[in-house]
Design a protein around this nucleic acid. Structure first.
Lengths: 137, 137
DNA sequence: CTGGATCCGCTAGGATACTG
DNA sequence: CAGTATCCTAGCGGATCCAG
């Protein structure tokens, strides 16, 4: 009674794998830093080396919509990467700053950046080789 | 004549930013390693410490569809991360292996992994604090 | 000023079936 | 065995409007 098709088994495996991946710190971290806006926000705050206001970030990052800015900041705050300080004046003032953990993360990001800059050339060359050789077909 | 709304200006900025980001090695790399399957494939190949066949990878990674497996492998091959060796026997045999660059990348991945494992606890704690304090509202 | 809520288009990626 | 081609869905993220 092979009512369990290959697809079903694969999906089952996928569910388990997803669970595994979600519980895996590495993948959680990768998910986090791979977010386009995360790296930008973190490096913006790292450069500033001090608190930045919501609109400062919005201006510095330029292409971000308020929604994504807020959303990303919230998740970063939740993870203890940034701290959010509200000054209940009129108008309201909100400052964001890297926590110690966030600062640490920015170091990792720097390591990644270094790797990227050291190896990007190799990658580009590989791409060109690949592209020209497949064009030749 | 403010026919250029804030949204339009932001979109303009977004386009420029996208271009900037695409040309930025760091973000290219982040895009690459953040791909769910990339890290899995690279670490699978790193563990194997030798060539693996297409179906070996499919089995090892379990939850992946053929489409994504092929697609990911192709892009990794293009970037010179993995090498693809076809043995034209019957049936065909295809082996994938990390290149030197790929091997190097797996080291970076290890660094990321180490960071994740050292700091995940802090993140989890921060999350719990955040969640419980927002529940309290 | 700092966002929350809502709608909505788009595309990444999964299922499925087929080929060399 | 190692893919390719097709369809289709879910969710990400942008626009827009509104509120504290």
């Amino acid at each position: 009674m092979a009512t369990t098709t290959a697809a079903q088994r694969r999906q089952q495996a996928r569910v388990e794998y997803d669970a595994f991946i979600k519980s895996c710190p590495t993948n959680q971290l990768l998910d986090r830093i791979s977010d386009k806006w995360v790296s930008l926000i973190v490096s913006a705050l790292a450069e500033a080396d001090g608190p930045m206001r919501y609109s400062d970030l919005g201006r510095k990052i330029a292409g971000v919509s308020p929604k994504m800015l807020t959303q990303t900041l919230r998740s970063l705050e939740r993870d203890g990467i940034v701290s959010r300080t509200v000054t209940p004046s009129v108008p309201v003032r909100v400052d964001y700053e890297l926590t110690r953990l966030g600062d640490n993360l920015s170091c990792l990001l720097t390591a990644v950046k270094d790797w990227a800059e050291h190896h990007i050339e190799e990658v580009v060359e590989a791409r060109e080789r690949y592209d020209t050789s497949s064009e030749a077909s």
